[in-house]
Design a protein around this nucleic acid. Sequence first.
DNA 1: ACAGATATGTTGACATCCGATATATTGACA
DNA 2: TGTCAATATATCGGATGTCAACATATCTGT
Lengths: 118, 118
Amino acid sequence: MATAALDTHELIALSLLAEGPLYGYAISQRARSRSSGDVTLTPGVLYPLLKRLEKGGLILGEWDEVKSERAAGDAPGRRRKWYRLTPRGAKRLHAQAEAHRAHARMVEAFLTAPEGSA
Amino acid sequence: MATAALDTHELIALSLLAEGPLYGYAISQRARSRSSGDVTLTPGVLYPLLKRLEKGGLILGEWDEVKSERAAGDAPGRRRKWYRLTPRGAKRLHAQAEAHRAHARMVEAFLTAPEGSA
DNA sequence: ACAGATATGTTGACATCCGATATATTGACA
DNA sequence: TGTCAATATATCGGATGTCAACATATCTGT
C-alpha cells in the first residue's frame, strides 16, 4: 500500500468491463450514470487509461465498424473499439478491489483514532 | 469528487495533528506505527506536504530548539518544527474525511455492481 | 570515535489528472 | 438541405503528487 490512491479510474473501468465488453464512450457514460454524475471520465483520462490497460494485458480491444442505415456502401462508418477483460485483468480487478478496501480501512483507522494511541 | 485520490497523505497528517501538535518526523513515525508499517511518509512526501498545508493555512508551524545535555552553551542544537492544526485545518479535516467516505462508498458501488444495472 | 537514530530539507525522474483541442460520424429537427 | 447536438475516438501541455536518492546536521549509546 504505502501510498494510496490505487487508481480509482482503473478500478472503475475494470469493474464495468467485468460485466461484459464495452467501448470507451460507453464506459464513460456508465461511470457517470452509475455514480450519479460524480465520476466523469473525460477523454483525456479515459483513452490513456484504456491504452495503459491494454498495453498491460489487462483488457483486450477489438475494432468494430458501425454502419448507418442511410450511409453510402463504401462509407467508413463510425469506429468503436470494444474492450473485454482478460483473465489477468479479472485477477487485477479482484486484487485492486481488496487493496481499495484495505486502504479505506486504513484511512478509517486514522480518522477514528482512539485518543490515547501513539 | 469526479476524480479520486483525495490526498490520503494530507488526510493522515491532518488527522494526526488533530490529536495535538507534532513535528514532521513524529508524524512520519506515528503514521508508520499506527498503520502497522503500511504508510511510509518519506521526506520527499512529508516535507512538501507540510509546506503545502502551512501555505494553505491549514496548519501552523513553529520552530523549537532542542538543547542536548552535553552540548556547548552556544551550540545550535537540533531543530524541530512543531505543527498544529488551525481551525481551518480542522474544518478541512472533517470535509476530507467525509469526502473519503463518500469516495469509498462510490467505489464500493462499482464493485458490488447489481448485475442488471446500466 | 563511531554508528545509528533523529530531524529537516531538496532534486529529478516519472505518472496521473484534466482542460483544451482535434477529427469524424450519426441522428434529430427545421 | 442545413445545422446542431450527441456519439466516438484521440492527443497535447500544464499542473500536481510520488518516490528514491541525495544532502546536511544533531543526538545517543557503546
